[in-house]
Amino acid sequence: MADFDDVLPEALRRRAPTPLVDIGANLTHESFARDREAVIARARAANVTTLILTGTDREHAEQAVALAREIPGCYATAGVHPHDASRWNGELAAAMAALHAQPEVVAVGECGLDFNRNFSTPAEQERAFEAQLQQAAEGRLPLFIHERDAGRRMTEMLTHWRDDIPQAVVHCFTGERATLHGYLDLDLHIGLTGWICDERRGHHLRELVRDIPASRLMLETDCPYLLPRNLPAKLKGRRHEPALLPFILDEIAHWRGETPRALAEATSATARAFFALPQPEEES
């Protein structure tokens, strides 16, 4: 196993100009078990002051809530990922509803549709997603959505529910222009990751980021996944972490024609409003 206790190389220690919100950090992943405190400390040093810990199933949502209770500036989501949609039943629905009532939980999800891998059948995915749409509507919580190769069906389902759900963000957006504008027409939020830093598959996003209003755009690492490919130094183990969010910020700011400071201020304000988060104390 790679030694993740080592600090980041000097070239990868970049501090954001103003506090950032990472709306998608999978800190319950086993790769963070050994050095989670150090990961949080490196995030703080990079001025990534607020983390939304993603709960993709009951186990990880419960862990995310526990961490959010322990770590200042951390919050949790609770949902069932489309890969695990086949497990959805009454017991799981009740467990999710109980988690949604916890003060640390700020969104329903990660939930949605993934017709790329189909680890659960499309019918199972739609059933679980429909149930979680209802939970979001009843709990008046925003949705944290996963969508891959399912833009048309996702748009149809969200159109039906849009008047009932407070807000929704399509996290880790990687789709095409038509899908993006369909989501924007529904007044959805968009989360962008280091996918845009990948010249092999994220090049098309560079032409789309200007289309996203600042009031609808948020940043995320989706760590430990989606390590940016354009980092100025190699990272041992290739595990992504929140401290690297400033590099994603810089890349998106470049393609939007904005300064990193302006983008940081806008995306963090948008995230705090979306998740109803308190304003953090400004760091020097």
Results as ranks from 00 to 15, higher is better:
222 D>A: 09
144 F>Q: 03
166 P>N: 06
196 I>T: 06
156 E>A: 14
165 I>N: 01
188 L>Q: 03
158 L>N: 01
180 L>I: 10
181 H>N: 15
176 E>H: 13
184 L>M: 09
155 T>M: 08
173 F>H: 09
176 E>M: 11
182 G>P: 10
202 G>L: 02
187 D>K: 05
217 L>S: 04
160 H>C: 13
167 Q>V: 13
208 L>C: 06
148 R>V: 06
135 Q>L: 15
162 R>F: 07
192 L>H: 04
208 L>K: 01
201 R>P: 11
188 L>P: 01
226 L>A: 06
138 E>T: 12
230 N>A: 11
223 C>W: 04
145 I>D: 01
153 R>V: 01
218 M>Q: 11
144 F>H: 10
130 E>T: 15
149 D>Y: 05
199 E>R: 06
153 R>D: 09
198 D>L: 02
174 T>A: 06
209 V>Y: 03
199 E>M: 10
231 L>K: 05
219 L>T: 06
215 S>V: 10
174 T>H: 00
149 D>P: 10
232 P>S: 07
131 A>S: 11
183 Y>G: 00
161 W>L: 03
149 D>I: 05
211 D>I: 04
139 G>P: 12
226 L>S: 08
225 Y>H: 11
167 Q>T: 14
164 D>Y: 13
157 M>A: 10
179 T>V: 15
192 L>G: 05
206 R>Y: 10
232 P>V: 12
190 I>A: 00
227 L>T: 09
223 C>E: 04
216 R>V: 03
176 E>R: 12
173 F>V: 14
202 G>R: 02
146 H>K: 09
168 A>M: 13
151 G>D: 01
219 L>C: 07
200 R>D: 12
156 E>N: 13
143 L>H: 02
198 D>E: 10
227 L>Q: 06
